[in-house]
Amino acid sequence: MTALLDIKDLVVEFPVGGRVVQAVTRVSLTVQRGETLGLVGESGCGKSTLGRAVLQLYQPKSGAVVFDGQDLTKLSPPLMRKMRQRLQMIFQDPIASLNPRRRVGDIVAEPLIIAGVTDADERLRRVRAVLTEVGLDPDITMARLPHEFSGGQCQRISIARALILEPELIVCDEPVSALDVSIRAQIVNLLEDMKDRYGLTLLFIAHDLAVVKAVSDRVAVMYLGRICEVAPTETLFRTPAHPYTRLLLDAIPMPDPDIRPVEGVAVGEPPSPIAPPSGCRFRTRCPRAAGRCAAEMPELVALPSGQMVACHFPLI
């Protein structure tokens, strides 16, 4: 396997009322061709920002996003526009990500038009094919407006739009978080099917650990703009190395009233990203924090178990 996507020391900053918030702080990650990398973390930890920065929807302050050997941050706008055909995105809010005033047929055909497919018959043929692929009847859906569909159906339309150019990488930004629990499995299964069929590589952003466990080959855990831990899914869920990963796993509710909530783990709210703690970002909530954690920001290092962890005192 070769790395399709290589994120190197990526920094994304936003100006907020005269100050600067670093939403993503020196993040390095690789995604292998054909794998699904799950990216989890609390709301506001910067995981969506990271996903969008990969697609150059935000201009990174520094660092590189190397896709198939080319640094996207250094591509000229015309070349980047061309490159976008190989990178697609699926959004969290299925209804807001579709233009309420355009018909579904036009929405799904839009990538083809932008990519310069001028033959209207070919566009129609491909739109019909991809709609069928995601489980929608083209005859019924194409002439309708998005608000005539349910959230799950809208997400299928969104997936069809992302697939029609047969991209290599799809960034899924919480694609099932806004859906009913009963619909989630369907959409997750659809994504899995499409991944096999099109040989996709997925960067799967979510805060729902159950979903991430189901779809990911590897999982990266993010906290306040930093990556805490990257590990194969099985390893991460069985033996978390970072105290924050442990906290997330312990927070999964168990469907058994006799199980006591785990004591002695971190509590409270994450600190404000405007003024992050010195050293390790997690130290203010970490049960194992020591003096060194305040002084020195831990970097990702490989453990013998095969997982990467950014902690001075890993759990294993």
């Binding site: 929807l57 061309k82 990178l87 807001a96 990500s97 233009n99 355009r102 990538p111 739009r161």
Partner: peptide, 26 residues
């Protein structure tokens, strides 16, 4: 601020196309 505009940008649509096709109808 809606996501369909971000989606159009992610697809590589230019400014003119986003203004005319995504924003104007709304």
């Amino acid at each position: 601020a809606r996501e369909f505009v971000t989606a159009a940008r992610a697809l590589g649509a230019g400014h003119a196309r986003i203004i005319l096709k995504e924003l104007l109808p709304n």
